[in-house]
Design a protein around this nucleic acid. Structure first.
Lengths: 241, 241
DNA sequence: CTTCGAAATTTGGCATACCAAATACCAGCA
DNA sequence: TGCTGGTATTTGGTATGCCAAATTTCGAAG
């Protein structure tokens, strides 16, 4: 039966018999503009100068080969995300976070990641946890090599993201990713300090052990303290404003 | 000195000597459309039917007396926020969350609010904490009266929001507000059950006492368990899909 | 040389028009 | 009656143009 009603119903209800998704035949300009802008902002040294970083709709639309409309929609999305701020008759400026805001972000991150650790300790499969340990080993081996990286330690973040994935909550993953994005943007000499304070391998090992032991309370506490320590470090040693 | 350069610099740097914000002389159509749509979605019984809830750009633009452009920008923002999903040649549909997603939201909420409790216990002024107790008293008195409310207990949410404000972190407040929005949308008979499970006054009192005693660990644990209990309740007693 | 202000320019907000894709409709055929 | 195929319509995506507000420019007055 391929009646129109049935087809319609199938679409409406999702008919999850088949696990395929309607693939976006052609990525819209809006999406592409969004991705391009976010990418550009990612690789921008936001805190490198004091001048306001502002973008120009028309310039962007020309460079991307699209009209202003989809760019404006992409900007609206990034504005909602807190990365941009469109000021009438001024321009679209890249938002700089204050030190206080960054600290709030790290604290929220501590909350989310410690919850992830708790959930991971109580739910994750032994296999998944084992993968985390394998990842940690790799992380430890490449420590010195990656130490040169002038961004906020990629490996370090990757470890934390792996931990969060263990919780099985894609929401926690999405929320922390968003927070990471902002914290990561602080390129600064003191980032090395932060990194050092943050990446103590022993902390990571303890966390893994707690999760392996299915000790949710301990895992949560270790992660929370670990990340809050970073917040306190930023509070006392980083100067942004 | 009111030279142009000085004026310009003042604008550029923000000159935070004065804590006033450039007030948007006339709220843009985009903002108004955003607010109107969000308001509409708020008062929509999203889970009341199985049919896909879809909106029409042109219809909305007519009703709001604006063109499609600002409406599309507002839709893009709400899409970013996860409330809407624009499907090409289909329409703009209001996103329904699965039960699993709702549970993830409550767990994230537990993470954020328990962190807020921790911060409140260690930072909030005695006066602010006292206000929380006063608020609790009022909340308790009006319990029976408000019990009729067929939405997710307003008073209950208000208590939690007051607690979160105590942390002093506007980020935690913003993030939990967003989560509340989605959880609130589940209008369902079982919401009463959730409410009952959630609003035990004794829990609230214990939380206040822990904060007053500056016992951060205890305050955090009480709030976390309190909210995770709701998650477990939803998991076993609410049926959405 | 500085100050002031009016005109030109810039820039985001908004409206409108067009397009392509996907659906809905309907006539015609088996 | 029921299916099929083609056409009309709907609908979101995009381009374009105009507008008002704010800035910048620049020349005239002091």
């Amino acid at each position: 039966m391929n009646t129109k009603a049935a087809l319609n119903k199938r679409w409406q209800s999702g008919d999850n018999g088949l696990a395929i998704e309607r693939l976006p035949a052609k990525e819209s300009f809006k999406s592409r503009a969004y991705a391009a802008l976010k990418e550009a902002i990612t690789h921008m040294n936001i805190y490198g100068s004091e001048e306001p970083l502002l973008l120009d709709e028309r310039d962007i639309s020309e460079r991307l080969g699209a009209s202003r409309t989809p760019i404006r929609e992409a900007v609206a999305m990034l504005e909602q995300e807190g990365l941009l701020k469109a000021v009438p008759r001024r321009g679209i400026l890249v938002v700089r976070r204050t030190k206080a805001e960054i600290i709030e972000m790290i604290e929220a991150w501590a909350a989310l990641e410690s919850m992830a650790a708790r959930l991971a300790a109580s739910r994750a499969s032994d296999e998944a946890i084992a993968e985390l340990r394998a990842f940690f080993k790799e992380f430890d081996l490449n420590r010195i090599e990656r130490e040169r990286c002038d961004e906020y330690s990629t490996a370090n973040i990757a470890f934390h993201q792996a931990l969060i994935r263990l919780s099985g909550s894609s929401l926690l993953a999405a929320m922390t990713d968003n927070l990471f994005f902002h914290v990561r943007a602080i390129r600064h000499r003191t980032i090395f300090e932060m990194d050092r304070a943050q990446r103590s391998a022993s902390d990571h090992l303890e966390i893994i052990q707690a999760i392996e032991a299915r000790d949710a309370d301990r895992a949560e506490r270790l992660v929370r303290d670990h990340t809050l320590r970073l917040a306190r470090h930023v509070e006392s040693h980083v100067n942004l404003d």
